[in-house]
């Protein structure tokens, strides 16, 4: 593994607090994921790809923004791997890069209506913007 790959892997593991080596490859995270069909890379692939250091494809993938953070994979994983926390860490690594914000304040008026709860707007900003 190159040094830059290794550094990225270490960063993801450190910020997520997840140890991907605990995974026993049962796939229960992907079995349980409600956003599975909308994802290019599925929860078990996130775990495996972080473990093997193959993180760049994840950084580029829309899958980062499909994870609903519903914690179903966290609660049901028999190995306590907590895949959602890994997805979150990769997502942060992506949007923390300059110019990588996925949403700006200017986009908001078009995306909301009269009933849109404030909760939705602040949540979306937390997920898409740094």
């Amino acid at each position: 593994m190159s040094n830059s790959k290794k550094y990225l892997q270490e960063e993801i593991i450190r910020t997520s607090g997840v140890n991907p080596k605990k995974c026993m490859r049962c796939g229960k995270c992907s079995a349980t994921c409600p956003a599975y069909d909308e994802m290019e890379y599925h929860p078990h692939q996130f775990v495996y790809m972080v473990e093997s250091g193959n993180i760049e494809p994840l950084l580029e993938s829309d899958s980062l923004y499909r994870c609903l953070t519903c914690f179903a994979c966290v609660d049901r994983c028999p190995r306590s791997v907590e895949p959602a926390k890994l997805v979150e860490a990769v997502r942060l690594a992506a949007i923390r890069k300059q110019g990588n914000n996925r949403m700006t304040a200017n986009d908001v008026p078009e995306l909301i209506d009269d009933e849109t709860p404030q909760q939705l707007i602040v949540s979306a900003f937390r997920k898409y913007t740094k």
């Binding site: 409600p34 956003a35 909308e38 923004y65 609903l68 519903c70 179903a72 949403m103 949540s123 979306a124």
Partner: peptide
């Protein structure tokens, strides 16, 4: 106890 789709409504109303 399944997710409603949450914040993803913002950019992917279909999901």
């Amino acid at each position: 106890n399944e997710c409603c789709g949450g914040y993803v409504r913002m950019e992917s109303p279909e999901l």
